[in-house]
Nucleic acid binder design. Structure first.
Lengths: 94, 94
DNA sequence: AAATAATTTAGATACTTATCTAATTAGAAT
DNA sequence: ATTCTAATTAGATAAGTATCTAAATTATTT
């Protein structure tokens, strides 16, 4: 997935909050929805955006879909940002 | 500035490229514009968004305005992302 | 196989964003 | 003071995004 997709996904507050919820444990779409006031359809939309950006994984179980954080892409974003800030004079990292 | 503002600012490819140009040296609005095909007005719009997000600083000199990277906010974003990815098992923060 | 439950998809709409052209501001130099 | 240059602001528009309701899908249980 492109950086573009990733950053766009990260740019919405609801989606960032979803990611934070998922740091603690995996959650079903319904459980995620309970943390917000919007409809299940809207939550689903946000999950799709996060999924497309590879920021989350999903696994189906019974008739639930559990979502969990995928940190692989986060690493790449971290590298990009680190590189960006890395040279005031001279860089020391990564 | 809010995290929201910061992430929104980072979510556009033109703006990310501007930031990268500015890692090398400060540049005037005109010099920045030369790297793109869009009009000066559009570049100015993007600079305003980056400025509002505190991602860049400006200094007026003669009748040029020079822009440079401000890494302060980048640090915060780095922390946020690091925290997000930081817990495979168990969390320590937030 | 019908009914129920969890979730997604489709279609509609209001809001936001990126872009342009034209006009304006601010400073420098004639 | 007029002109020239650098850059921004204003106003318009097209494209993209977040949200809703209603319908469809998928799996489970009766």
């Amino acid at each position: 997935m492109s950086f573009q997709t990733t950053f766009k996904a990260l740019s919405d507050p609801v989606r960032r909050e979803i990611l934070q919820l998922l740091t603690k444990q995996r959650l079903s779409a319904g459980e995620i929805g309970q943390h917000f006031t919007m409809t299940a359809a809207t939550v689903s939309y946000h999950l799709k955006v996060l999924k497309k950006a590879d920021l989350i994984d999903e696994e189906r179980e019974k008739n639930f879909i559990y979502y969990s954080l995928n940190t692989t892409v986060l690493e790449e974003v971290l590298l990009w940002l680190t590189d960006l800030k890395g040279n005031g004079e001279d860089e020391e990292n990564n």
